[in-house]
């Protein structure tokens, strides 16, 4: 991991308009991403992890979205960019990888044309150079016979191949930042392993920073350097990957790790987090949003702040200091 900060997110809040009213989906999120770093953002549905990704790459429908705060990318606050300035950045300095590789490709366009489109927008290569680059990219993501594949349509490829094509599109202009939103969720485990390895290889080659959005703790443990755990639109814990897995502090992080089936749980019940994630319309931002899920722990009034508890390790609130699971009390 290099010292150079690539992306600095400061107090970013995103709110969506639902029936005329704005509801906060992510609340004052702050994060730094360095060059060569893989930062995993973990959370369950409704945690706001995908909203954060979409806010960074500017893909929200701005008619119904409000974003506050500051996102510095290479020293520029990208929230102040207009649409055409942002288009210069997207696909060029930042690339995105999506969850569902079939839906993410236009069914009526040839694979080669879909990769070439990003070169059309951002480079002044000749047609021949572009074609050569397309073939080079298909080869780079590990697909044999690039000339043939470039002429094919998405439905003619397997799920794993399609995801490789999505990666080829994302890295076509050697972006410094890659945002991968659940890149392996739709894939089989063996393919997942290959795609994760490919992502790591590409990152090492291009010296990119990767933001990996996922709900899968196993994937995080395999590839992340740092982890941010999100719950109800805010980061509850953040730190180096070994700290998060080996010395988790926040009750939510600890609950999640305990809910996972592992070798030792064969004959036991899994840990169940009580209650459910509050809906976006019912989040009381002046309280500890996770407190209702650990009702045996005394509630401290007000909204807990996130604090550094060790170098690079941040935890929200104070109740982690005395938190015990019910069966440990």
């Amino acid at each position: 991991m290099s010292e150079k900060i690539l992306l600095s997110i400061k107090d970013v809040s995103t709110a969506f308009k639902i029936n005329g009213e704005y509801y906060t989906a992510i609340d004052k999120v702050s994060l730094d991403l360095h060059q060569d770093e893989v930062l995993a953002i973990v959370g369950e549905s409704g945690s706001g992890k995908s909203t954060l990704a979409t806010s960074i790459i500017g893909l929200h429908n701005m008619n119904a979205t409000k974003i506050n705060g500051e996102i510095d990318f290479n020293g520029r606050d990208i929230l102040k960019l207009n649409e055409s300035e942002f288009n210069q950045l997207r696909g060029n300095d930042m690339g995105m990888i999506f969850q569902d590789p079939l839906a993410a490709l236009n069914p009526l366009m040839r694979i080669g044309d879909q990769i070439k489109e990003t070169l059309d927008v951002h480079s002044d290569m000749t047609e021949n150079q572009k074609n050569a680059r397309v073939h080079e990219l298909i080869d780079q993501v590990g697909i044999p016979n690039p000339e043939r594949v470039a002429r094919q349509f998405p439905h003619e490829l397997s799920g794993g191949m399609r995801q490789r094509i999505i990666i080829a599109i994302a890295i076509a202009n050697k972006p410094e930042l890659i945002i991968a939103d659940e890149p392996t969720t739709a894939l089989d485990v063996t393919i997942q392993a290959q795609i994760l390895d490919l992502l790591k290889d590409i990152q090492q080659e291009n010296h990119a920073g990767i933001i990996l959005i996922t709900h899968d703790l196993g994937v995080v443990a395999e590839v992340a350097d740092t982890v941010a755990v999100m719950y109800a639109g805010e980061i509850v814990e953040q730190g180096p990957v070994d700290i998060i897995f080996n010395e988790p502090k926040h009750p939510y992080t600890r609950s999640l790790l305990r809910a996972m089936p592992t070798l030792d749980t064969e004959n036991d019940d899994l840990y169940v987090i009580e209650g459910s994630v509050p809906s976006i319309k019912k989040m009381d931002r002046n309280s500890d949003l996770f407190a209702p899920r650990i009702p045996w722990v005394p509630v401290t009034p007000g909204h807990p702040e996130i604090k550094e508890v060790a170098p690079g390790h941040l935890v929200r609130g104070e109740n982690w200091k005395y938190f015990k699971f019910k069966d440990e009390v």
Binding site: V189, T190, Q192, A193, L196, D197, D216, L217, G218, V219, A221, E222, V241, D242, F245, N246, M260, T262
Partner: peptide, 22 residues
């Protein structure tokens, strides 16, 4: 064996060893 080796491991310390094994 291949299927089992592809399961992501929560074993940060041996990450590289697991990758090599896979």
């Amino acid at each position: 064996k291949r299927l089992l080796s592809a399961i992501p491991q929560i074993d940060i310390a041996n990450r590289d060893a697991n990758k090599a094994q896979r």
